[in-house]
């Protein structure tokens, strides 16, 4: 996942160990759901993601393993 802030993406799959993928899915990172990168810690990492009605912070090293499709026709309010 490498989207600019505020840009919507659709989750395709999670290329992560099973237990990590499961934990992220429980928090809303389910394939098909929309994810929007939001604010971050100073320096840009970790970053908050808006997903399925929640805000979840991930380090970049984890986020890069979440494959998404850029929904580039759709810009969010930020």
């Amino acid at each position: 996942m490498d989207l600019p802030r505020g840009r919507e993406g659709v989750i395709l799959d999670l290329d992560l160990p099973e237990d990590v993928a499961r934990r992220l899915m429980e928090l809303g990172f389910v394939p098909g759901n929309t994810v929007v990168p939001a604010r971050s810690a100073p320096g840009g990492d970790p970053r908050v993601y808006r997903v399925d009605g929640s805000e979840v912070a991930l380090r970049r090293e984890t986020a890069v393993h979440i494959r998404i499709r850029d929904r580039n026709d759709c810009f969010s309010d930020e």
């Binding site: 992220l24 908050v48 912070a57």
Partner: peptide, 9 residues
């Protein structure tokens, strides 16, 4: 192993 940092806000 660096385990992922996952934090719900």
């Amino acid at each position: 192993e660096r385990t992922p940092f996952v934090l719900e806000l």
